[in-house]
Amino acid sequence: MAGKKIRAIITGATGMVGEGVMLQCLRHPNVEAVLIINRKASGYKHPKLTEIVHADFYNLMPVEDQLVGYNACYFCLGISSVGVNKDDYYKNTYLLTVGVAQTLAALNPDMTFCYVSGAGTDSNAKGTGWAAVKGKTENDLMKLPFKQVFAFRPGFIKPIKGQTKAHSFYKYIGWLFPVGRAVYAGWFVTLAEVAQAMIKVTQDGYHTPVIEGKDIIALGKNSLTSFR
């Protein structure tokens, strides 16, 4: 797909990861169009950007006609398992993600689907904890008839400077990033690297569908354009 322009659907743009991926895509010359789907308006305006405000991600039928013609999905929507019961976490992680993906696969079979999972995810999907639910989600996404599916597994993510959706605690622990990167680079990545890696695998593919932190860093460095 090298040389082909990317038309990307991004979910979760009202959260930190989705916002960062969106901003990088809007700046990247190989991305010609970005569609964000949110439960509430993001407040962003850009010549490349289209936004759909849709409350029910479990039923995309009312907006399906607006989802056709895209060749990438960067799925950044998700919730923390902290303080959430197992049934709600399963519903909002597995059922929501796979349901949206099934719709997109039917509408856009030439699509590359990139799912933001997490470091420590269990590919064996044993048990009911967050790591198993994420693993089951990854596994079942890879069975869908997309052109490509990639599971991204970042650990600590450094937000892009100027983001409005970055968690406030990053202001107080940001100093940890260079230390963590030096000691264990694979667990410490930047949001710029995540987005650039998504663009890179969409265009050129990759030798493994599971993109660990070290892969994110390498792919981010090899992306056509760097936006730090």
Rank of each mutant, 00 (worst) to 15 (best):
16 M>K: 04
201 V>W: 07
197 A>H: 07
54 H>K: 02
43 G>Q: 11
143 K>R: 14
50 T>W: 05
142 M>T: 02
59 N>T: 00
6 I>V: 15
5 K>T: 12
44 Y>D: 06
35 L>V: 06
189 V>A: 06
95 L>H: 11
43 G>M: 09
216 I>Y: 06
63 V>E: 00
130 W>G: 05
49 L>M: 11
22 M>V: 12
120 G>A: 09
150 F>K: 01
148 Q>F: 09
152 F>L: 13
49 L>N: 12
220 G>I: 08
87 D>K: 14
196 Q>L: 13
36 I>N: 06
44 Y>L: 15
180 G>P: 03
95 L>D: 13
166 A>F: 05
132 A>Q: 12
144 L>Q: 09
49 L>W: 08
139 N>E: 11
161 K>Q: 12
142 M>Y: 00
127 G>L: 06
219 L>H: 04
215 D>S: 10
15 G>F: 03
179 V>A: 09
208 T>H: 12
191 L>R: 05
63 V>N: 00
90 Y>A: 11
157 I>Q: 05
145 P>K: 03
108 N>F: 02
74 Y>K: 01
55 A>L: 10
63 V>W: 00
144 L>S: 05
64 E>S: 08
25 C>S: 14
181 R>E: 11
43 G>K: 12
76 C>K: 10
50 T>F: 11
198 M>R: 09
115 Y>I: 10
55 A>C: 04
127 G>Y: 04
75 F>L: 07
68 V>S: 02
228 R>M: 14
81 S>N: 14
65 D>K: 01
36 I>Q: 06
7 R>A: 07
61 M>C: 01
56 D>S: 10
42 S>R: 08
172 Y>S: 11
139 N>V: 04
210 V>P: 04
115 Y>V: 10
179 V>C: 02
131 A>E: 14
214 K>H: 12
68 V>C: 01
139 N>W: 01
104 L>K: 06
79 I>L: 12
186 G>A: 10
216 I>W: 06
40 K>Y: 08
219 L>E: 04
174 G>H: 05
91 K>R: 15
210 V>I: 15
75 F>N: 15
58 Y>R: 01
4 K>N: 13
1 M>Y: 13
115 Y>D: 08
41 A>Q: 14
218 A>D: 13
56 D>M: 07
117 S>V: 04
59 N>P: 00
164 T>Q: 15
151 A>Y: 01
195 A>R: 03
135 G>I: 10
211 I>T: 03
40 K>C: 05
